[in-house]
């Protein structure tokens, strides 16, 4: 019963509904601008590119070590840090060999505008999604955690039979509401995308074939696991959802701990800024375990959404880092929620 009422409170909150609508409108605007700027298919869909692509084998004879060495030269890595990068790419070689054996080739669709639209969907829109739903989840959590305090109903709710345990129900409601609002943003934006851009996506083709090079890079798009384009889209949406839940967890922990929506929001902003600043600084050298471990944070994952499921460049030393990051920070942020809840249980309500 309480779950239902709490969920209704959040899903009917004018603030959250407005924010959700704003996210969809922002995506709509972005897609309309991209649609207007897109070159016509006749100009870019060059038959010679298609034919050339058909003969190109992406992974045949490709050496992961060459990627490692290019990074080592670029970052001027030495010693153990260089060895870490080499070891990571050595581990990637069997994956490349497996893909080469499968004779992965660029798809016929892969030329001209279609490629641009892939970049638009998987490179830009997906990044927007993950950031928007993360922010939405953070605000949902903050609102949920401080709802009673903001309305002065904390004392009557905490003096009821459910008491301060209502905060646990609110946590589940926050995660549910975050999922619902995220699905609304993602669903509406994808609908707009597919309505505006009429093209065929080779859903069942291997994603490494469709994206024959990583976005903005010269190396192939090498995923640790074999993923079709459809699987890659779902998996990326899954990671976006996971990141949204991470934001919900930390927002809820901050809201429960600080009891002030402004202080809690400020603490979350500080935390994410710290994640980014440390990652950008030279405190943690590329190729070090510390840099790799730091890169598991949600902020780094957001900023590098294009590398999910791939090697993660030289900064990331571990396979499947996006799932590793999600698991690690789920545990960390869930512990923060648990700690904040136990503080609340002992806190005096004045």
């Amino acid at each position: 019963m309480v779950y239902r009422y709490e969920l209704k409170k959040l899903l009917l909150s004018p603030l959250l509904l407005t924010l959700t609508l704003l996210c969809v409108l922002a995506n709509l605007t972005f897609l309309l601008v991209e649609h207007d700027n897109a070159p016509s298919p006749r100009q870019t869909n060059r038959p010679e590119d298609v034919l050339a692509a058909q003969d190109a084998s992406i992974f045949d004879g490709y050496s992961a070590a060459s990627i490692a060495e290019s990074y080592i030269r670029w970052y001027r890595l030495e010693g153990t840090n260089a060895e870490h990068v080499r070891a990571k790419y050595d581990a990637l070689q069997p994956v490349i060999d497996r893909k080469a054996a499968a004779d992965e080739k660029p798809q016929l669709h892969f030329s001209g505008q279609v490629s641009d639209v892939h970049v638009l969907l998987f490179g830009k829109l997906l990044k927007f999604f993950s950031q928007e739903v993360g922010l939405l989840a953070l605000l949902t959590a903050l609102l949920s955690a401080v709802y009673e305090q903001m309305r002065g109903t904390e004392s009557i709710v905490y003096a009821s039979r459910v008491g301060r345990q209502v905060q646990l129900t609110k946590l589940w409601v926050t995660l549910s509401a975050s999922a619902v609002l995220s699905l609304m943003v993602i669903g509406c934006s994808l609908l707009i995308f597919f309505a505006l851009f009429d093209f065929a996506i080779p859903w069942q083709a291997d994603v490494s074939s469709v994206f024959d090079h990583a976005l903005g890079e010269t190396k192939p798009f090498i995923t640790w696991n074999d993923l079709t384009v459809a699987e890659y889209l779902w998996a990326s949406l899954g990671i976006s959802m996971g990141l949204a839940w991470l934001c919900a967890l930390i927002g809820f922990a901050a809201g429960t701990g600080f009891r002030s929506v402004y202080a809690a929001f400020g603490a979350c902003v500080l935390l994410f800024t710290a994640f980014d600043l440390v990652a950008r600084s030279s405190l943690l050298p590329v190729g070090s375990m510390l840099k790799s471990a730091w890169g598991l944070n949600p902020m780094w994952l957001w900023k590098n959404s294009g590398t999910w499921f791939t090697d993660g460049r030289a900064e990331m030393l571990w396979a499947n880092f996006e799932r590793l990051g999600l698991c690690a920070y789920s545990i960390l942020f869930a512990s923060a929620v648990w700690g904040a809840y136990h503080l609340l249980r002992r806190r005096e309500i004045h």
């Binding site: 309480v2 009422y5 309305r151 002065g152 109903t153 004392s155 009557i156 009821s160 039979r161 459910v162």
Partner: peptide, 20 residues
């Protein structure tokens, strides 16, 4: 005493009945 300004008494009491 705090209350939900946009609720009716009946809606508010339903919520309080749930937490009780």
């Amino acid at each position: 005493f705090g209350y939900y300004r946009n609720h009716t008494p009946r809606e508010f009491l339903r919520y309080m009945a749930a937490v009780k």
